[in-house]
């Protein structure tokens, strides 16, 4: 069992830099954390989830679909030269990635997504390195390798062949670590939020949440779209063409179901024409529609929409309200 210091992890990352396109947690000039290359800012493994939508590594905010030069040939985007190595997903982020892998492969395989995702390596960071000394859930799988912090060092746990190959390249000054007690701490983390969204999901599916509730919540939404743009399982996109000097570029860009222009019928009618319908859609999609479609919730409680929403109507807050107001009525 390898137990590495932050410096040793940084040395390891430098050693694999020639082989991989690195996306590691870094601290930006303004003090916020993001995913980037080692040259873009100091490595920042402590502090928990990265505020940015972590799945943007494979599904970026904007990406090119193809280019057509004036010679008429369509050139699809080429995959990057090196496979992507991500460090710094949380266990919840790894759950989200597992779902969107399924989403982008089912029925039609989205080659734009998989040309980044195929061959990539995911390293989750967990344990005693959360914000304000908090404990981050241990993934225990769903990634190639996990770096579990015991408060001082990071214990490397490989789950896949790719992970094991990389683990071999890690030079650790210590070969022991107490993983069992860390796993126990992880198992004992409270699951109140999960219970809340599960209950909210049941209530929505049982039609116990009246339309008036969505009107009230919808009234609070200012359609800033932060919730969608931060959510690792939000996958909606817009497609548009740009023409410049005879070259046409088709791109896709994240879209938000909270915007009025999101949906149209050919007649011009908007089936999601009011704020309450759009707000219901945002919550209903993850807690009800996807349960029907995929058999499970598609919110993994990463916490980003609650952090991002300026009017405090992220999925956890809304779920809490639903449970407080409508579960008793349900039990009557």
């Amino acid at each position: 069992m390898k137990s590495l210091t932050i410096t040793e992890i940084e040395q390891f990352l430098k050693s694999v830099e020639p082989e991989f396109d690195l996306r590691v947690p870094i601290r930006l000039h303004d003090g916020t954390r993001s995913l980037g290359g080692l040259n873009e800012g100091p490595l920042s493994l402590m502090g928990g989830k990265i505020p940015l939508k972590p799945t943007s590594v494979f599904f970026p905010q904007t990406e090119r679909v193809f280019t057509r030069e004036s010679d008429g040939e369509i050139k699809m985007e080429k995959p990057g030269e090196k496979p992507i190595l991500v460090v710094g997903y949380t266990a919840e982020d790894a759950d989200c990635l597992e779902f969107i892998d399924k989403f982008f492969s089912e029925n039609f395989r989205d080659d734009l997504y998989f040309q980044k995702r195929d061959g990539s390596v995911i390293m989750v960071v967990s344990g005693k390195c959360g914000p304000d000394g908090g404990f981050l859930k241990i993934a225990g799988g769903k990634c190639d390798l996990e770096l579990i912090c015991d408060g001082e060092r990071f214990i490397a746990q490989a789950y896949t062949e790719k992970g094991r190959q990389l683990e071999k390249k890690m030079k650790a000054s210590k070969e022991v670590g107490d993983i069992d007690s860390l796993k126990k701490m992880s198992d004992e983390l409270p699951d109140d939020d999960l219970k809340t969204i599960q209950k909210a999901s049941e209530l929505i599916l049982a039609e116990k949440v009246p339309d008036a509730f969505w009107v009230e919540i919808g009234d609070r939404c200012i359609a800033c779209t932060s919730c969608n743009y931060a959510c690792p399982t939000c996958t909606c996109f817009e497609v548009y063409d740009r023409v410049h000097d005879g070259t046409t570029v088709r791109e896709r860009m994240w879209d938000s179901c909270q915007l009025d222009g999101f949906m149209r019928e050919a007649s011009g009618h908007n089936p999601m024409g009011t704020e309450d319908i759009r707000t219901r859609r945002r919550i209903h999609h993850k807690l009800a529609a996807d349960v029907t479609r995929w058999g499970h919730l598609t919110c993994y409680l990463c916490g980003r929409c609650d952090d991002a929403c300026p009017t405090n109507i992220g999925i956890k807050s809304v779920s809490r309200m639903i449970v407080e107001r409508y579960s008793q009525a349900n039990e009557k």
Binding site: F103, F104, E106, N107, F108, D110, T235, C236, F237, E238, V239, R252, D255, C257, F262, M263, R264, E265, A266, P271, H284, H285, A288, A289, D290, T292, R293
Partner: peptide, 16 residues
């Protein structure tokens, strides 16, 4: 109104 036609862009959903 459909943007992708292949179940990815999300613009054409009716509930699930």
């Amino acid at each position: 109104y459909m943007k992708c036609g292949v179940g990815k862009c999300g613009h054409c959903t009716i509930e699930h």
